[in-house]
Design a binder for these strands. Structure first.
Lengths: 225, 225
DNA sequence: GTCTATATCATGATAGAC
DNA sequence: GTCTATCATGATATAGAC
């Protein structure tokens, strides 16, 4: 065997460098040349290993998403084990799903911020070549959580729960992608330090999500306070 | 004067075509060449009139945003006039702000869908050259609504209201940009027809938003049912 | 099989003639 | 204000070295 074990494979080097550069400049502004230069590999290697720049991004997202879903599932299983056969509380389910995601932000190494920005980006693109979101494994986990919510909220129509799950994902994606944060609070009387705090973001967002999830059906249209 | 009044100006033709093409293919995949061809104008005219492709997008977003904010402000003023000096209900304020936005989706001509997708896109880009969102006029309107919410919810800390406003914008942007919609509901037992219905989306989203806005502070952390 | 060097093609941008 | 080059850069495809 002439495999050189002390050097990273080209493929690995590419993914690591790409992740960093995508995070810094965004997908569009990051060029293949810059990535291959940083990784000290040939320009064409991206095409060889991944097929295209887009597919490289896809692989990166899949890697992260896979890890995230693993964590989420573990969190859910732990909760279910503890509570025996009793239904979980909605707040616990949200903690396992969104809390796990939000915790990613704290760990610099996991590149959570870039992950979420890119995930957001890819879900906004019309040509959804980047379909990590709808991929098998990811969907299975989502479905698992959906079922948990069904159980936890037996009186709410399943339809509504699915929709609200969707809304929660939206609020979270947006909040995390950081976009508004810097801008929105310039005019508001909120200190910079506070606006950056990830811990507070989590508290606040979770509270918001839970309120939305448990909102009376069509309370707005019924018009009652 | 040799102005030709019966023909659209190049500038106008460009904006109209760009709007359509951006909507169909997304910003990246839409090329300047395609736009100028569709508009029957010269390739260089984009740069002459707007400076760059990016600035063309910026102009488009500004145009839409200006119109939207005008509508929103009108809706708010009408409500305030009706209720005299009495504080508005949160649901009314949300209707004026988010309802107005959601109504854009129904009118094909307004290109609401593309607008929101592009707006979402631009807020996700790291280099926020596209800063329509934080531009003066837009901020003024947002602030006006924020103040209305302060009045409507005198017992909620202003901090929290600002955050929740932000979360609501996120949930709405995501819900509207349509991304999940097609994917998320494949596995769920929701009919295609229903998932497309804009009217139902509005009902559901508004209910969710209102629930989130009025959620007890930190209910999640306190842990009470 | 893995990687490199090179070629090709489309794109955004610019300069200068008209 | 419009048009025609022209440029620089980037993505992708191919051929071939190791």
């Amino acid at each position: 065997m002439n495999m050189n074990l002390e050097e990273k494979k080209t493929c690995e080097k590419l993914m690591d460098c790409a992740e960093k550069i995508f995070a810094e400049k965004g997908y569009d502004k990051a060029s293949i040349r810059e990535i291959t230069n940083a990784a000290n590999v040939n320009l064409a290697s991206v095409h060889y290993h991944f097929g295209s720049k887009e597919k490289l991004l896809q692989k990166l997202l899949d890697r992260k998403l896979h890890w995230l879903n693993h964590q989420r599932l573990n969190a859910l299983k732990t909760l279910e084990k503890k509570s025996k056969s009793k239904a979980l509380k909605p707040s616990q389910i949200l903690e396992a799903f969104f809390g796990t995601l939000l915790d990613m932000l704290d760990e610099k190494d996991y590149g959570g911020e870039m992950f979420l920005r890119l995930l957001g980006r890819s879900s906004l693109e019309p040509n959804c070549i980047i379909s990590s979101i709808s991929n098998g494994k990811s969907n299975a986990v989502t479905q698992r959580f959906r079922d948990a919510l069904f159980k936890a909220l037996p009186n709410v129509p399943k339809n509504e729960i699915v929709w609200r799950f969707h809304f929660m994902v939206g609020a979270t994606s947006y909040a995390i992608s950081g976009n508004g944060l810097n801008k929105l609070f310039v005019t508001a009387e909120i200190s910079e330090a506070e606006s950056v705090s990830k811990r507070l973001l989590k508290k606040r967002l979770m509270s918001f999500l839970l309120g939305g999830l448990r909102s009376p059906i069509n309370s707005f249209l019924i018009g009652k306070k």
